[in-house]
């Protein structure tokens, strides 16, 4: 499990303690569902966003 409080400190984020605890608690639940999914990603998988150049008009 990630230590979100130390990550916030490391990133220099100035989040009040109580609010950081609230965020960390929610993120912990997301993390528990998200982390196992990463094992399913094949090496060659591309992300969904992609920069595409369109051909010029008339090409």
């Amino acid at each position: 499990m990630k230590d979100w409080v130390r990550i916030a400190e490391g990133l220099g984020l100035e989040i009040p303690e109580a609010e950081l605890e609230r965020a960390a608690s929610s993120l912990g639940r997301v993390e528990a569902l998200f982390r196992p999914l990463l094992e399913k990603i094949p090496f060659e998988a591309e992300p969904a966003f992609l920069v595409m150049h369109e051909p010029e008009e008339g090409e």
Partner: peptide
């Protein structure tokens, strides 16, 4: 606040999962 704590790698992994 939660979004600022998400590592870039996790965001890109999420976008890879999204395509799959």
């Amino acid at each position: 606040d939660q979004g600022r704590l998400i590592p870039a790698t996790d965001y890109i992994q999420a976008q890879r999962l999204r395509r799959l």
